[in-house]
Nucleic acid binder design. Structure first.
Lengths: 234, 234
DNA sequence: CAGTGGTCTAGACCACTAT
DNA sequence: TAGTGGTCTAGACCACTGG
């Protein structure tokens, strides 16, 4: 593990275990430098990382402060899959609706940047959070990279398996969001009425080398899906 | 303007004017260092900034590549207000529904971290994009910081005025998202039916020193509001 | 103006990719 | 194993905040 990541983690743990409140001041740079026995650049890099995650904010000429204003019942839009799995605090279960190997449609081929005769894994699941139907997910994996999946894996976290089991490294992702009304089919799975609202999130995940390996279309329950995103102005 | 920002801008312009495609390789670090007559750290910092904006991605051991997979009809969720105004490509107009100075409700006071007897500007607008009703925005500004607003300002970009006119510096922001059904009142303003879907986005904007100065609640038209977000795994 | 965070440099060394 | 990106250092200097 890299030094700046270790430091970032330690600072995050410190904030957590000491239950620091929003706006509380952290030690100054000089002190952090000696405490972690490292250079200024490395501390700043650790703090930048924490700032990006919405954990601290830095004010030039003043200090470094704790930022923790999350609402407990909202989940991070971006940590949704793949990245840091904060979802562990919830009990996630999945009902498999469909699972097979097939050829991509035109749209999927385009998103995954493959030709129409290449194989993809297709997984369609209803995902529950603490027993409530949370979303319907249709997910397509480029089989050239995600070489193997089985029922047990897709019952749990596919992304954990991809990273730990297959050793693939996830680099970045695109999210596209829009709304629509539920179809009758979706409504029964989500325990809602036809034409009730839904949020559609299309996700495209890339490996570190820029190859898109997964495309997903997720339809969220309009009462249970609540997201937050943090943003920083630089 | 800082050196790394200047370099980031120049690289971005280069990609734009040369219409580089997704996946095309940029010059290697050594070349960029000599070209911009600067150190490695500064180039990396410029590239990190571009990476965060979803403009390039870096692959260790391989190179720096262009990332441009945006869908034209989606707008950035985060650049929505305040930050880089990509919205200039659209023709945005506003109908003012309400505009006054008032005392905050409990909820607003809590979000803006003020007491119930402090003054706030209240602005309620229907915003149109290229003539289509796009959202209904209820916005609350802490008058201790946003000291002045008038009809002309709120007809246009309030955030431009806050930054350029009042000289306030925006630091970061929180977004909270959920869905619901339109009320009859909202439906008429958005030219939709009662109970049609809507996306509710609550935004909280902070100055660089961590003071929250604006809280907004925005209700989006379910057919016209389409957003994208980019994410990077570090 | 003292204190504090941010930028920038030159260079050593490390880690990954592609061949 | 050559090429390329990433981390880390020590230190100079800059920019902002707040009393």
């Amino acid at each position: 593990m890299l030094k700046y990541q270790t430091i970032a983690n330690e600072i995050e743990n410190y904030i957590e275990t000491h239950q620091l409140q929003h706006g509380e001041k952290l030690p100054v740079l000089d002190q952090l430098m000696t405490q972690f026995n490292t250079s200024k650049t490395t501390i700043i890099k650790a703090l930048d990382s924490l700032e990006k995650q919405g954990i601290v904010f830095q004010v030039r000429g003043s200090g470094i402060f704790v930022r923790r204003k999350k609402r407990a019942d909202y989940i991070s839009l971006l940590s949704n899959q793949g990245f840091k799995q904060e979802l562990e605090q919830f009990n996630i279960t999945s009902d498999i609706i469909e699972f097979n190997i097939q050829k991509p449609t035109h749209k999927i081929a385009q998103n995954l940047h493959i030709s129409l005769d290449q194989d993809i894994y297709y997984v369609k699941r209803v995902r529950h959070m603490d027993g409530k139907p949370f979303c319907i997910e249709s997910s397509y994996y480029n089989k050239a990279y995600v070489t193997y999946l089985n029922n047990e894996i897709i019952q749990n976290s596919i992304f954990s398996y991809i990273q730990e089991g297959l050793g693939l490294k996830i680099g970045f992702s695109d999210f596209y969001m829009q709304m629509d009304k539920l179809t009758a089919f979706e409504a029964t799975h989500l325990h809602l009425q036809e034409n009730d609202p839904k949020l559609i999130v299309e996700q495209l995940f890339y490996l570190t080398n820029g190859v898109p390996f997964n495309y997903s279309e997720i339809h969220y329950h309009y009462q249970y899906a609540k997201f937050y995103v943090f943003s920083t102005n630089h």
